[in-house]
Write a protein that binds this DNA or RNA. Structure first.
Lengths: 138, 138
DNA sequence: CCCATTTTATTTCCCTGTCAACAAAAAGTT
DNA sequence: AACTTTTTGTTGACAGGGAAATAAAATGGG
């Protein structure tokens, strides 16, 4: 086990695009993710995911596999190298959370609740408006 | 003066990309905007603005002009056609505000203040962190 | 079982915006 | 004034991602 500090971790992710890291993250977190699942979880088109996974396979960070009872869907898993990136990203995420903790700690429960309530409210409102008529939101 | 309802306004903006409308909006709001000013206000590179304005000129929505005492900077203004788009967008914006008013009215002053305070706090924190060391935020 | 429909993944084409190189003008320095 | 540096705008190469067309497999209905 090798321990890296924050800048070392950042350095080791330097060679990868945010979208690639996000894709690795999503593959690591989901169970049996396929193109469609990844597209939904990353809010991208299947076409984009198809290209992204292809690139990640070429880089040796992920690999694809199929089920014996399904010749259509293609699933992905992390390679050992991919798992390293996944871990580094996860640790880096924690480090940033730790760094920013002070700000979030100052927020009281009441304040947090009211913010959450507002966001949920607005979200519900927009969903309703979208359903009501067109597709535009703003 | 012609009055349009919301869907009619949306329809009349259909032929323009969001970036184009935003650019028109920014040109309409700023005084003597040049490429650099627009780039800053729209958080885009000068290259992107240069191409965008070129396209808007071809479409006849804006026109460029120079100052007699400055042969370098190029300013933009809306044409009559551009002003129409500007107005429609502005009205549409108001319409959406009106539509969503109910949600925002439910937020009390205290709640609003606490949200604002949090955001300012976080923003200041991130600025400080960026200054402190690298350029990364997350 | 067979055909129509749906789901899934891939590919091609296209558009948008960034980056880096460049040219021209302005500003600063000596 | 003559130079260097900075600012400003433009261009071309490039990459990322969306839309639509396509192919292949799965599902559903008769």
């Amino acid at each position: 086990m090798i321990w890296l500090n924050k800048s070392q971790m950042e350095e080791s992710l330097k060679g990868f695009k945010p979208s690639e890291v996000h894709c690795i993250e999503s593959i690591g977190k989901n169970i049996d993710p396929n193109v469609t699942k990844l597209a939904e979880s990353l809010y991208m088109t299947r076409g984009a995911i198809s290209k992204l996974t292809k690139k990640l396979i070429e880089k040796g960070l992920i690999e694809s596999y199929q089920r014996s009872d399904n010749k259509k869907e293609i699933y992905f898993r992390l390679t050992e190298q991919g798992k390293v990136i996944y871990k580094v990203h996860e640790e880096l995420h924690k480090a940033f959370q730790e760094r920013d903790k002070v700000v979030f700690e100052q927020v009281t429960d009441e304040e947090f609740d009211s913010m959450l309530r507002f966001v949920e409210n607005y979200s519900r409102h927009l969903d309703a408006e979208i359903k009501k008529q067109g597709l535009t939101v703003h």
